[in-house]
Design a protein around this nucleic acid. Structure first.
Lengths: 228, 228
DNA sequence: GTCGGCTTTAACAAGACCTTAAGCCGCGCG
DNA sequence: CGCGCGGCTTAAGGTCTTGTTAAAGCCGAC
């Protein structure tokens, strides 16, 4: 996640920044309200951590301007030593999404940031891609070179397993377990399904993506991709 | 806003309820985890206030099930006397959106609820739309191509679930949970209701919007929409 | 108490899907 | 070069899922 920390105390800022960076986030800093507001308006952060005691423009002011003038809805977590009820209410009133009182545990801060960031990313769709083949796991739609492709439940599972593993080889056994769990069918019907999968995905097109590893299993690979 | 308060101490519950009602919210109550979860799954609240110390099913459990099994994203504000960092982190981990420690000021609770509700509303408008089909969640009015459509309560819930998820596939199981909660009917009456829904929404018109994914579930999609 | 609408149950038909089996092909090893 | 194992292909049969319809049960309104 991209996070903006607006905080004038550089020790605290570095402290927070390090911790969040450790968690895998990208952190930007601003030491005063004006530059903070500017960064917040111009860039696209997932969350803003905003200290209230700032030189120049107060944190409350920053938040208010961000919401009312810039009309940005970026989640704001306020950070302050002011712990009276009135202070909190004012904070929320100026458009904050959360409010933490110093001193606080960095882990709680991280957890609350996580929650705030979760919101925006709600409608990310999970999509697998390989060469010109696309598999949307939400809509269960498959398309290759712009053409829609229909697949059975088993075909879907196979394709997902293969695409997730690509370009690695997937054992027959692994594939079978993925589809049927522990209770495999008596005969080797995996072959039939692979055949069906090929008929749908490879046959109508020029370059086959599914390869056979004799005696081992199958794999999917983009034949045009540069070898790593 | 519609708010669900899950709290076994009826004094506290009444206290919170009164205060929120004063602020103009509509408040429902549950005295234990099981009924709370059921209400949360079947109904559509803007925010859920969840006490952790509940008889029967624990609050954390309720939250976890709401998220993972029922797949509902309704904002949850946890309320508890447990104020250690670990407790908080566990709360957020189980899917909470906010966490308040008793004792707390009712006004802060109200402010935080306001924020949570605000965010939810930003994402989903009260009018669902797909192709020429419109479903107004406030008036419970449905119309397609200018014609009004009448639907049963169950039909409404199904339609809402499908339209909110569209164009993603919704599992039969998810649909059933959404309509009946944990206690499903003995026979597969979902089929009959889907049939009814189709009769009302698709049959009288040219292009069907409801599709079947054999062995998985259903989805709604605008057949004319450009594939992304 | 009766009526009407809604929901559930049940039964059948139609369709999609999966497995099985059998023949053919091809690679790899002797 | 030939054999065998493993893989490919295809079609038929059976099973499971879904669509459809009708009737019975439930509940609230009048």
């Amino acid at each position: 996640m991209r996070i903006l920390v607006i905080e004038d105390n550089s020790d605290i800022a570095a402290n927070i920044g390090d911790f969040l960076a450790d968690k895998g986030h990208v952190v930007d800093f601003a030491g005063d309200g004006v530059t903070g507001l500017h960064l917040a308006v111009v860039n696209d952060f997932d969350v803003i951590v905003l200290d209230l005691g700032l030189p120049g423009m107060d944190g409350l002011e920053v938040c208010r301007k961000l919401r009312q003038e810039a009309k940005r809805q970026t989640p704001v977590l306020m950070l302050t030593a002011r712990d009276t009820l009135d202070n909190k209410l004012t904070g929320f009133d100026s458009g904050a999404d959360d409010y933490m009182v110093k001193p606080f545990a960095l882990q709680e801060l991280a957890a609350r940031i996580e929650v705030l960031g979760r919101r925006g990313k709600g409608n990310k769709s999970r999509v697998l891609q390989l060469a010109d083949l696309t598999y949307n796991l939400d809509t269960l739609t498959i398309s290759r070179a712009g053409k829609q492709i229909q697949l059975n439940p088993i075909g879907l599972k196979l394709l997902q397993s293969l695409m997730e593993a690509a370009p690695s080889v997937v054992t027959r056994q692994e594939l079978e377990t993925r589809v049927w769990g522990e209770e495999l069918p008596d005969s080797d019907s995996l072959r039939v399904h692979i055949h069906g999968l090929r008929a749908a995905i490879d046959k109508p097109f020029d370059k086959p993506l599914i390869q056979t590893r004799h005696g081992i299993g199958y794999r999917m690979v983009d034949p045009d991709a540069l070898p790593a």
